[in-house]
Nucleic acid binder design. Sequence first.
RNA 1: GCGCCAGUGGCGGAAUGGUAGACGCGCUGGUCUUAGGAACCAGUGGGCAACCGUGGGGGUUCGAGUCCCUCCUGGCGCACCA
Length: 788
Amino acid sequence: MSSKKYILEMFPYPSGNIHMGHVRNYVIGDICARYHKLKGDEVIHPMGWDAFGLPAENAAIQFKTHPQDWTLSNIENMKKQLKKLYLDLDWDREIATCNKDYYRFQQELFIDLYNAGLAYKKDSLVNWDPVDQTVLANEQVIDGKGWRTGAIVEKKNLSQWFFKITNYAEELLVDLDKLKLWPDKVKTMQKNWIGKSSGAEIKFIIHGSEEYLNIFTTRPDTIYGATFIAVSINHPIVSKYLDETKIKKIKEEFNLIEDDKNKMGFKLNISCKHPILEKELPIYVANFVLDNYGEGAIFGCPAHDERDFEFAKKYSLPIIKVIECDDESLPYSGDGQLINSPILNGLNKDNAIRKIISFFEKNGIGKEKINYKIRDWGVSRQRYWGCPIPVIYYEDGSYRVLEKSELPVFLPYNVNLNSQGNALINLDSWRNIKCTKTNKNAYRETDTLDTFVDSSWYYIRFLNNKLDKPFNAEDVNNLLPVDKYIGGIEHAILHLLYSRFFMKALRDIYNLKVDEPFKQLFTQGMITHKTYKTLNNEWVMPKEVVSKKGKLYKQGTSEEIFEGPCEKMSKSKKNVVEPDEILENYGVDATRIFMISDSPPDRELEWTDEGIQSSKNLIHRIEKYFSKEKSEISEETTKQVEKFIFDIEQNIMNFSLNKCVANIYTLFNYLEKNKIYLSNSDLSKKILICLYPIVPSLSSSLNKKLFDSLDINNWPVIDKNLLIEESIILPIQIQGKLVTTINAKKGYNEEDILHYVYKLDKIKKKISDKQIIKVINVQDKIINIITK
RNA sequence: GCGCCAGUGGCGGAAUGGUAGACGCGCUGGUCUUAGGAACCAGUGGGCAACCGUGGGGGUUCGAGUCCCUCCUGGCGCACCA
């Protein structure tokens, strides 16, 4: 029975050349796809290009090429490289996200999201790179600096487009449980990212005013221990009570603190009423309060929170114990009996939380609250090379999201890329338009969409890449989810979370039946390689290193070299190997074999010359084997081949591809050791089919040679009966320790066999002076004799 | 600090609670030779041996690399998340 199998590898960014990481990724996927095709499944195995993004703009400046020309020529080159790998891809499904036939439909989806209330615009604090004059995504800020320029990133308030991923926070969290075939690691990371926590939101009225602060806490039970309030510097209240220069000064002082765990605060001239007790709580602006979590404000309970404790010590604030514990153990944040808390005294933590929340709700002080750490997804980017956001602005500052009939908004080709920042801003001919609806002067949104938007739905577009609308609902329902999604773990949160959100959002907008885009996720490991450095800490390419008298030197020089650890291949460390070169020297089959040989696909693979060479030797060995004259074929041979088929199949299905290689060695070791040559027998045909997913080039050339056929299909059906061994080697243990093994027939009689076992010298020696108190016979597996 | 994962020969790694080290690399000895990044044969956890061996210690079990507790080490992720 044939079934649908959608097998997908994460599509590459067309940077110019594929690297070994791609090779490993795509070989793993290809083995899977080819196997399923041989099984008769209806396989979807597409490939495309994540083609928008900043590197194209950098290249434009550096090499004076247009991002589009640069990208398209990279795609052409990389496609050639992929073809050399014998990847069985559906090239007729190919897409490139920079192609207007892709991004125009993305603009439609943007409109859909907007109309569904899932896209909105708001002012927000963003990471601003002052050198590149652009917003950076959170992941592009490393230690507070722009990843490309090294400039210290500023927080800037900008009006930005957002997708309302928070609407789906709960579902994104809960549905992780449905993803049985995802690595736990990725699920845990997503869970932490969503960051659900439950507690209460409490109103703190500002003394002498109608205003109040909302504060989220997971520990409302400690409310009687509250002795101060702290807010983030970006909290709205701050700008109300402090002038701009003062705020700026405070910010600077916060930035000056070397150890960012050091607490610092400035007392405001206002205070809050304690919501229950008749007392005032001072309000501080504090550096340790996050502005992007909860309400950006906390109540400090120094006795039972480490951070509040530290802060209170520094500013001599009172510390009131409300949970029974030793004074030495403060701050104590564990469970315990409530004290000094009139209505909560004697209760434990959980009961106190429940009681105080209902008290708050009754008195209008606060309410139960679930808080999520995840924030809405900011999708605006001040960049040229991306999908234009289909929005126009009027002179009065109001805006209108375009209608689908007004699409597409083409990304213009003729732009000046020499200036910093977004080239679209200066392109008046594109930017200034007349609104077709109002006939008013208007100008286009010049921000483009985050490229993670492009990759959030490409797996859907693959299904109907030429369709005149984003997708076909029936196909989506029938062909999604992707059955096996293979790629690097570095996308554990962003891409995979965004895609899950997109799928759910589109499901709700279009009434689709798919909840999750990727049924199984497989994360392949990185490829590592040895690193070498000179005394001056300059990296040296491994192939330039020569060994002389136990020391290492740089080729052709007397400069000594030192071996460093094995690290992820990277250009800066000079430890990359180029796929083109490897394919040239070792051939496609050896390359593919090595990609799966030395370690399980989800772990690191260390690149070694010995490894790739032995893969090549294996290919030669198989070729040579099949060139020998046919010999007698025994029933045992048939059995061994059946076992081979069975093992390979199991191992492909479980992604245990390193074991497939072991299966191949085991089979040929057996055949050669016993001088059994199969030539053009039926068994050979079966073996070649099993080899085909892994080494398609070798398999088809042998198939042509031996059978004069180009036909490779129908994964062999195995006779399970042949796999059952009649005679077995039975281990005999005494006290659970192996003493000897004997040959036995399956289904032996326990009494008879023990009769025989007791007579064995090795056994006799050990039991003669002892009393047998028990014999454990695990039929056909093991016998364990217990003595006293 | 919190969370997750992992520790098995010289190395990469195999082992539904049932013969630990499959398979490969490397290494040792040998064969052949058009002297090679070849091919083939034999060996390869430790120990002369009895035996001992899966990071350390404890436990469950007839039996533990595998399950439980605890500690140590390494990696990854998050990191003042109130």
